[in-house]
Design a binder for these strands. Structure first.
Lengths: 194, 194
DNA sequence: CTGAGATTTCAGCAATGACTGAAATTACAG
DNA sequence: CTGTAATTTCAGTCATTGCTGAAATCTCAG
């Protein structure tokens, strides 16, 4: 691996963090490399830069495509495939949020929906189901919010983030004026009145 | 494992999802069990319910304590330790957000800070560093926002979530009135003018 | 104190996941 | 088409992580 020191440090770090982020070391390293690169790289360049096997790179790329974090491109007069990481950092954020949700949250939401259809047959089951309903409702609230925010353009999103807790002040005002209430509202309470 | 079917389904699911959430199967199962339980459980009850070894349960509990997702309690006239999962679901959400950030984001932020102190020595390094600055600034914006939101009380948080994308409408109004601008604003742009 | 019950630690085994090289498949220039 | 370069697949091996039982440590009633 002959990379500039700061690039190498970042690549190695992403490799180590990969585990915590739900991908393996090589996948983390490939993404880091592509993210920092000022031009698309082909698989052999990646293999060379990271010092791993060509097949490992192939599998890593496949996974990054599944995450929609890299794109394949073709350069004129070169049969090889080149890879690049999209560079709109806001879009990367949206993609990560969507993909993590798909992997980490949706399956649970689906299970909860199923279980909440069942009729409890004991006090213990009734309590368990009530807890699951709490969890279900909270997740729906969160994912619904995420859906909405997902659709904001970069600037609005940046504004929202910059606002921080200031939003609570804004909410006070809103509740007083009550005119801005636009279309779809959601259920606010998480307490289950069962 | 002799648990009510819906409890068992939920526990097994949490076990399987554990991997994606950064904990092992047993840890996921223990948490699921405690979350659904209507009373604190001792380690032997957990061992019995999950059909795993006592030592495995001990290690799992230790990890859940490190995540601050469970508490130890003592019942009068019983030497054993009992465990319970806090039941304010909003608090659980805050805890999860904090702990995941600590594990998944803070180390990267720290590395980025270090690297951004370095002086690039080539065009390639300059570009890489610019990308890292973008990432750094975005993460700071996100964690700063999270810090703020973290401090909201349950109701304000619920309101914020229910608002969804409606916040952008509110932001428009805000920018027109410009009176609500309270204290700490943050840098909005992510574009690096290097 | 003492000792029985309760909990934690840890070395070794089991299971899972990651990586490699070789073979198979695909893509395309000529 | 054909042949070569490029990519993917996959069986086997290596590395990591998870789990267990036994031993060590801790805790507290008597």
């Amino acid at each position: 691996m002959t990379l500039p020191p700061i690039v190498q440090a970042f690549v190695l770090h992403f490799g180590e963090m990969g585990g915590r982020w739900g991908v393996n070391r090589t996948v983390g390293q490939i993404y880091a490399l592509l993210f920092l690169s000022d031009r698309p790289l082909n698989a052999d360049e990646i293999t060379e830069a990271l010092g791993v096997s060509r097949s490992n790179v192939s599998m890593g790329i496949k996974e990054l495509e599944a995450w929609r974090l890299v794109r394949k491109r073709h350069l004129p007069g070169d049969r090889r495939e080149y890879l690049e990481a999209p560079d709109d950092i806001w879009q990367i954020l949206r993609t990560l949020a969507e993909e993590r949700r798909k992997r980490e949250i949706d399956p649970t939401l689906s299970l909860l929906r199923d279980i909440l259809m069942e009729t409890p047959t004991s006090a213990e089951e009734r309590h368990a189901q009530a807890k699951m309903r709490q969890m279900h409702d909270l997740i729906e609230l969160l994912t619904g919010w995420a859906d909405d925010v997902q659709r904001l353009d970069n600037d609005s999103l940046a504004q929202l983030l910059a606002l921080g807790a200031g939003v609570s002040k804004l909410l006070e005002v809103k509740s007083k004026i009550a005119v801005f209430a636009s279309g779809k509202r959601r259920n606010i309470s998480q307490e289950d009145p069962s």
